[in-house]
Lab assay of single mutants.
Amino acid sequence: GHYRIRINGREFEIRGISEEEIRHLEEALRNGADEKILKEIVDRLRG
């Protein structure tokens, strides 16, 4: 998958993330885990 997200007015492209991972992120966001989720995304993109 290849997705664009906007955070604090800046747009980011996220590549190589699966539909299942996105559902997991959405679930966590609904549970209020904003900073933790951003850290997970950044860590994943770093490799």
Results as ranks from 00 to 15, higher is better:
G32M: 05
E11V: 15
G47W: 04
E13I: 14
E20W: 11
L25A: 01
G47L: 09
E19H: 11
I17P: 03
H24L: 13
I5V: 12
R4Q: 08
A28H: 13
V42C: 06
I41A: 03
G32L: 08
K36T: 12
E19R: 12
I37P: 01
K39L: 15
G9M: 01
I14D: 00
R46T: 15
V42P: 01
G16T: 06
E26Y: 07
A28M: 14
V42S: 03
G16I: 10
E19G: 10
S18Y: 03
E19S: 12
E11C: 11
L38Q: 01
R15P: 09
I14L: 14
R44F: 14
E20C: 14
E21W: 12
D34K: 05
H24N: 12
R4I: 15
L45S: 02
E40A: 10
I41M: 07
A28T: 09
G32C: 07
I14S: 00
A33D: 08
L45R: 01
R4V: 15
G1Q: 09
E40W: 14
R30M: 10
I41H: 02
E26V: 07
I37H: 08
E19N: 03
E19P: 13
F12W: 13
V42E: 04
S18R: 05
S18G: 08
G32V: 06
R46V: 15
R10M: 15
A28I: 09
I41S: 02
V42Q: 03
E21R: 03
F12G: 00
E35V: 10
L29Y: 06
N8F: 11
E26R: 04
I7F: 10
V42W: 08
L29T: 03
K39Q: 15
N31W: 09
E21K: 03
N8W: 05
R4G: 02
I5E: 00
R4T: 15
G32N: 10
E40Q: 06
E11I: 14
I22S: 04
E27S: 10
I41Q: 02
R23T: 08
Y3A: 02
V42K: 02
E11F: 09
I22P: 00
I22E: 04
G1M: 06
S18C: 06
D34S: 14
I5S: 00
E35Q: 07
R10L: 13
I14Q: 00
D43W: 02
I41R: 01
I37K: 11
L25H: 00
G32K: 05
E27M: 09
E26Q: 08
I7V: 08
E19T: 13
I7S: 00
R10N: 09
K36V: 09
R30Q: 12
E35D: 12
I37W: 09
I5R: 00
E19M: 11
H2V: 12
D34A: 10
E35K: 05
Y3S: 01
I37V: 14
E19C: 08
